[in-house]
Each structure stands twice: as structure tokens, then as C-alpha cells.
Amino acid sequence: MTDDLIFYTNPMSRGRIVRWMLEEVGVPYRTEIIEYGPAMKSPDYLAINPMGKVPAIRRGDTVVTECAAICAWLADAYPDTGLAPAQADRAAYYRWLFFAAGPLEAAVTSRALEVEVPVERERMVGYGNFGAVMDTLEHAVSASDYIAGPEFSAADVYVGSHVGWGLAFGTIEQRPAFETYFARLSKREAYRCALAMDEAVAPPQAG
């Protein structure tokens, strides 16, 4: 097995987060498009990700799945990119990466599925309630230009992807702080390149 960096994805998936991160890292990688259906559940792909989901990355014998983990791993694997803060300054970086991977995604998914948590049971779910998550996210993106401080990091790729999708598809509230934050991120060359690459291989939209 070579040490080539391989990216398993589908353009209609959360793989778009990792594509953006890979373009920020700027190292060569090979893309393997995995179609939904039998290909994603095939023995060959299940050996990469037993969940049968994309994205995943592989370098040599190392396999990483889960978008937040992939973003963090790439930032550490290629430290010269400066996409992770210094070890002593990572509190906010870790905090918001895992906030987006946990409470934010869970709250947004529940809302999209029209799952309402009874007030008396909010303490049973990690996010409490949707409004609290939106308020917390608004505070986080308003505190500085970037989610973990004054410098762009891998956490912005992950959090920013959630914000951008949420604004586009109406799964998060249209708050000015969210719009300002994502507008800043979407000007980045790596974001624009990644978007164009995924759009180029995405299936045509009906209608």
C-alpha cells in the first residue's frame, strides 16, 4: 500500500467538507467517487468504512472517517499549513469542532426530521433545544473573525460548512452573524476551488 492520500467521497454528501479541507491543505490527493447504493455497501468499501458512508480518507495504512476527525487529522498531518492552532491554544479549536459535530448537527437533524424534544426531557439530549444551539453558535461566530480566534483554522472549514449549508437549505436560522461569518469564509480560494470541483462531478439537477 502506498502513502498516496486517497479521498473517498460523493459530491452529494458531507464529502464536500473534506474536499474544502483538502484544498486548504494543498497536498496532492486522489479522489475516488463512491456511488450511493451497492458500491457504498460493497465489501471493498466497507473495509475502509464499516458504516458504508462517505467521506473517508486513507494514507498508507491509516484510515480516517467522520468529517470533524478528518479535518483535525489533516491539520495535524500537515502542520506547515497552519490549519491548527499551537497545542497550547487549542481550547476553542477543539470546543467548536466538537460542538458542531455534536450539538449543532444533532439539533439541525432533529429539526429537519420534525423531532421535537419535550421541554421536560431536554436534559436527555446533548443539545438541549434548537434555540440554545443557535444562540450559542451566534455567540461563537461573533466573538472573532474566525471560530477559534483571529486566524482561520480547520475548525472554520467544519463549522463554516454547517453554517453555509444551513443558510442555503434553511436548516439554521437566517441570522446576520451567520451570514457575515460564512460570507467571509466563502471568499477563500480553497473553498471556491473545492466547490467548483464537486459541482463538476455532481449529477445534473432535475427541472
Score class of each variant (00 low, 15 high):
3 D>I: 11
3 D>A: 14
7 F>M: 09
8 Y>N: 06
8 Y>G: 02
8 Y>P: 03
11 P>K: 06
13 S>T: 11
15 G>W: 04
16 R>H: 12
16 R>L: 13
25 V>L: 09
27 V>K: 14
27 V>I: 13
29 Y>W: 13
30 R>S: 14
31 T>Q: 14
35 E>A: 14
38 P>S: 04
42 S>E: 02
43 P>F: 00
44 D>P: 06
45 Y>N: 08
45 Y>Q: 02
46 L>R: 15
46 L>S: 06
47 A>I: 04
48 I>S: 06
51 M>A: 14
52 G>V: 04
55 P>A: 11
56 A>L: 08
62 T>F: 12
63 V>R: 08
63 V>D: 09
64 V>N: 00
70 I>T: 03
70 I>D: 09
73 W>E: 09
79 P>R: 08
79 P>H: 00
80 D>T: 09
82 G>R: 01
83 L>W: 02
86 A>E: 14
87 Q>K: 13
92 A>R: 12
96 W>C: 02
97 L>Q: 04
102 G>I: 00
104 L>N: 00
107 A>E: 01
107 A>H: 01
109 T>Y: 12
110 S>N: 15
112 A>F: 14
114 E>W: 06
118 P>T: 02
121 R>S: 14
124 M>Q: 15
125 V>G: 04
126 G>K: 11
128 G>Y: 02
130 F>I: 00
134 M>W: 05
135 D>L: 12
136 T>I: 03
137 L>G: 02
138 E>I: 06
138 E>C: 12
142 S>Q: 08
142 S>D: 08
144 S>E: 07
145 D>R: 08
148 A>L: 05
149 G>A: 07
149 G>E: 05
150 P>Q: 09
153 S>F: 04
159 V>H: 12
163 V>S: 07
164 G>T: 15
171 T>K: 00
171 T>H: 09
173 E>F: 05
174 Q>D: 15
183 A>T: 07
184 R>V: 00
185 L>N: 01
185 L>P: 00
190 A>G: 03
190 A>L: 01
191 Y>R: 07
192 R>D: 04
194 A>Q: 03
194 A>W: 01
195 L>C: 11
197 M>Q: 15
198 D>T: 02
201 V>W: 05
201 V>A: 00
204 P>L: 02
205 Q>A: 15
206 A>W: 03
